[in-house]
Amino acid sequence: MTELTPANRRFLAFDLDGTEREQAGLNGHTIEQLSDYLDHGRLPADPGIDDSPDCEIALRGLERLRRAQRSLLERDLERESRRDDSWVSSILNNITLEAHAGREIPLTHPSPTARLVVTEGAVRGILRETGDRMQNVFVGRCVLVGDVSVPGTPISIRVDVTVFPGENIPLLADQLRHAMYAALSKYTELVVVAIDITVSDLQSLPEASAHEQENQ
């Protein structure tokens, strides 16, 4: 078999047998070390690697390999994204809301045979949608704190919200809180004593987040 680089002129460090020849060809280093060095952006600088022509050859090879890996991944992802949507449908058609239904929150009815409930999952959905109907607000996590299964028990609600930069956060939080109270009183019989809203600015994510908390 003809090869572009004859086997006897091949770069010794890429030889498959053992690490001795590898280290001998790489100024005492291994391919694994060089690969980790690249992972860390060649920092902190190691003159033992940077000043070795053999290491430089190997590093260039590794970089070339990574470029090829990246373009291979891009090609594969491109192919996948051209598929029709049926795989998404088959996933979504096979999951059930039950997994996140949460606790059952009672609703009153005069008949002794009636047991009417709204699920915690539905209540979280109400809170999310209430936020989604407002401009420039994203509602994230919603937590119902307290024993929601016992009618009349005071509970509180914690909501994480992301707003777009430049918004008046206290004003928005106040509007959201009022809208949530209104929705909760319409669709549930929960006795909500507080809605704590934690606001993050979209731009400051994920590092900093302003905490705007206010009880009503």
């Binding site: 809301l97 239904a101 059952e104 609703l107 008949s111 045979t113 009636a114 047991r115 009417l116 409930v117 709204v118 699920t119 999952g121 539905a122 959905g125 109400i126 949608e129 669709y187």
Partner: peptide, 9 residues
């Protein structure tokens, strides 16, 4: 008993 569960609004 008749149980009615409101699972989504």
């Amino acid at each position: 008993q008749i149980v009615v569960i409101v699972a989504s609004v």
